[in-house]
Amino acid sequence: MSRVLVGVKRVIDYAVKIRVKPDKSGVVTDGVKHSMNPFDEIAVEEAVRMKEKKLASEVIAVTCGPTQAQETLRTALAMGADRAIHVEVAGAEYETLQPLHVAKILAKLSQDEKADIVIVGKQAIDDDSNQTAQMTAALLDWPQAVFASKVEKTDSGLTVTREIDGGLEVIKTKLPAVLSADLRLNEPRYATLPNIMKAKKKPLKKVAAKDLGVDLSPRIKVVSVEDPPVRQGGSILPDVDTLVAKLKEGGHV
């Protein structure tokens, strides 16, 4: 049986309207409601299902972030993860935390914890990087099965259906391996009350990034964060002739 490590990220809840900071250095996060990255929820669900099907022996949820990120771990625990590891990254370091850093942390932890499978969401909805799974696999030199929409256990490993441009690809992989969850992999459950209560008592270990030997100095500098351009208002024209005239006027025909 395998041990599964699931990476979860605390992001601004997708129902919240995003506001860009006036100095364009990022988006406003203070006093804004956060929750687990939806793709990571799918990853947790898949790991918990593996455990329920007795394909996995233990599910460990990991997050990197400030103290509040522990709420996200508690959500993972309430969904069914067995224990959690909080890699503390706060302040300025957190602001510049990038997929490569997270991949190094996940790689180190999967070795320390003797994980056989690492699952993360295919991307986080805040930075849309879509890099962590791939980088983790490269650092560990493990096979990767990303954009998974179906995961099945086979004798020697996993059969994974991947969502690719224009269709699906089915691949077989040996274990250990790194997976990333796509939207259709499953529909995450709601944590039930008894499990929410139990989650409060499940073990949550805190570690510092530097204790894992990971250097968090930034590799990328964010130059500017800006709102998408506002849509120009349309107008209703009385007839086709006016439309054609307008199009000509604008140089479109």
């Binding site: 809840d13 129902a15 409601k33 929750s35 687990m36 939806p38 709601y190 944590a191 039930t192 009350l193």
Partner: peptide, 24 residues
Amino acid sequence: FLNKEMESGLIMDGTVTSDPAKMQ
């Protein structure tokens, strides 16, 4: 409130959330 009413059996099961998306 939840602890008390889970124990009393008034609430048989349920879920609770403060994530805006889930609440929606």
